[in-house]
Design a protein around this nucleic acid. Structure first.
Lengths: 345, 345
DNA sequence: TTGAAAGCGCTAACAG
DNA sequence: CTGTTAGCGCTTTCAA
């Protein structure tokens, strides 16, 4: 039997139609469960599809209808918190026809613009943007072009939905826990913002606000002490060094994110100190690693999985009904007390 | 000035051509730097492109030429080792026109098939599969359809390139290090394989082989002791518990992957033991977390970043010249000695 | 209920 | 060097 020597060309709708003895229109209709197909036509078409191993070309479909593709932009593959969100998104999408495709935004507006444009160029049906750093105007522009849901931005846009953790409250939970243990000099490591819009929208800014507010509420306003660095391990390391060098160093550090807390622990080890013996440390996010016994980090669970499921649900709704009013969901965080916090010595 | 109330339709090549006063062919040629365009035509077209903010539709291009999209399948977003590979791939692609899109294969053949089909349906120009679990026949089928590079499978297919760490040698490095410290009862935690093909192709199987071989080479054949679990944190936890329960427990544990070693450390902490005081622990991969001072894990650096760069290079070559003979690259691992290994007590 | 035909945005022969 | 023309695989009016 002669074999073609080139890569087998893909089976197209034309071949399916020929084998089934019907028109391409008919095949298309059956595939999309469209109106106006007889049972026998359906079964003949389905048989031909199976026999030939036909799969529709998403790119050809894109020129007329949808691609059944949802794009997720995440800032960084390394931050394990985003994995929880992704799991949630994937779980919701698994029950649908949609395929998930991911890209990295790189925590940088230029790179984010490149990546979102790339997803739009590829005719994705909808986008989920996780913790984007682009300006609200730019996000609005994206949302005008394609159905969009934003995670981790407290904005009030009418064009896209948002899903957030209540960061302000979450920060308060940490302060309450530490104050309850008897700490007074509770310091915070934040990722600094200067831009007015970002001060209002970014989770890190709201956590810092929540920290300040809660400190005052507990009568600890005079002990407010913030080290401004970044939400990275290095940022935590630097922040801890700054705080430890104070004339009167804190007895507890609330890091704005778990990765930051890891950097803090690193700096403590380096300085010959340990948590909670010498100093208490708390994070935010409850990444999987926080539960790791060797670390056992006290933190705040913002239910990444649930955030992902919610965002995926909103996106599919929005794809179906692009003009519908924007939903802005805020989820309640819960404190997770583990081994890195204890009473001050 | 009246504003359209619906979402602005995308600018197409036709409009660019009209504004520039040339044919669509001309625009297409200029955009692709194709042969046969005069300087003035080029500048007029470019001006129109900029003015109108035109971006080519990747999906429309897909029907004729390439999509300038490379798909990467990774088994799992959580394993931080894959992030190193991704960085390498992204770095290499950043200098090109290609856009990277990722999917999760889920460490499961059925799910991998779904995901690879999805990428093929979307006309991706090439695929990089990281540590796939599908059968060689299935991988061959994929590679017949689209240019493919496989990372983390020691296969010898003529259809796709592979990039691997020399796992056999790497395992030997760990045994040599531990034996050099004076350990004799060195145990190993592996991810078990029974299938003949997988025994020959999977990195975990080669690491176990390398362990056995090195133990014998060091005259420690009688102390070979393997706990068969999985390459996960839980697998490490379970493996350590099994090994600690032996009548004569090991003085050193070589975990087949860093995530496994984290599970081992977890089990040690639980049992009131520590590394390297009570027992030495080594991993494999050198994930970023291994350098974290609180952990300071001895491991093997398999240069994930370099693997990624190499794979991306091979893929672009293969896209250009699909028929070229397959390259099978094996990179040399280097030992990274940190704080979790020391002399036996 | 069914199918012919037009066209989505782009590229590639082929003429001029 | 430039433009006309014919599709790529699919969906969608619109007649039959």
């Amino acid at each position: 039997m002669p074999q073609p020597r080139t890569a087998a060309r893909r089976v197209t709708i034309v071949e399916v139609a020929r084998h089934a003895g019907v028109s391409t229109t008919a095949v298309s209709k059956v595939l999309r469960n469209a109106y106006g197909t007889s049972p026998q036509m359906r079964s003949r078409v389905r048989a031909a599809v199976d026999r030939l191993g036909y799969r529709p070309s998403a790119t050809a479909r894109a020129l007329r209808g949808r691609t059944w593709t949802v794009g997720v932009m995440l800032p960084d593959v390394r931050n394990p918190f985003f994995a929880d969100i992704l799991d949630g998104v994937a779980e919701h999408l698994d029950d649908t026809e949609y395929q998930l495709l991911m890209t990295c935004g790189g925590n940088d507006a230029t790179s984010e613009a490149r990546v979102t444009e790339a997803m739009i160029d590829r005719s994705m049906d909808g986008l989920i943007l996780i913790a984007p750093v682009s300006s609200p105007a730019h996000l609005d522009g994206i949302a005008r072009t394609v159905p969009t849901v934003v995670i981790g931005r407290h904005s009030h846009s009418a064009r896209y939905d948002t899903v957030n953790d209540d960061d302000f409250t979450g920060a308060g939970l940490v302060v309450a826990h530490l104050a309850g243990l008897g700490h007074r000099r509770i310091a915070h490591i934040e990722q600094h913002e200067t831009d007015r819009v970002r001060l209002a929208e970014m989770p890190n800014a709201l956590r810092a606000d929540g920290y300040r507010h809660a400190m005052r509420a507990h009568g600890l306003g005079e002990h407010i002490d913030i080290a401004s660095t970044t939400y990275t391990r290095d940022g935590g390391h630097l922040g801890a060094r700054l705080l430890l060098a104070r004339p009167d160093p804190p007895t507890a550090i609330f890091a704005g994110a778990d990765v930051v807390a890891l950097g803090v622990l690193d700096a403590l080890t380096e300085a010959g100190l340990s948590a909670p013996g010498d100093i208490s440390v708390a994070g935010y996010d409850d990444i999987t690693l926080a539960a790791f016994r060797t670390i056992s980090l006290t933190t705040v669970d913002q239910a990444g999985h649930h955030i992902g499921v919610t965002a995926a649900g909103l996106l599919l709704d929005r794809i179906t009904e692009p003009g519908r009013p924007a939903a802005h969901v805020k989820l309640t965080p819960t404190p997770v007390v583990r081994g890195t916090t204890g009473p001050p010595r």
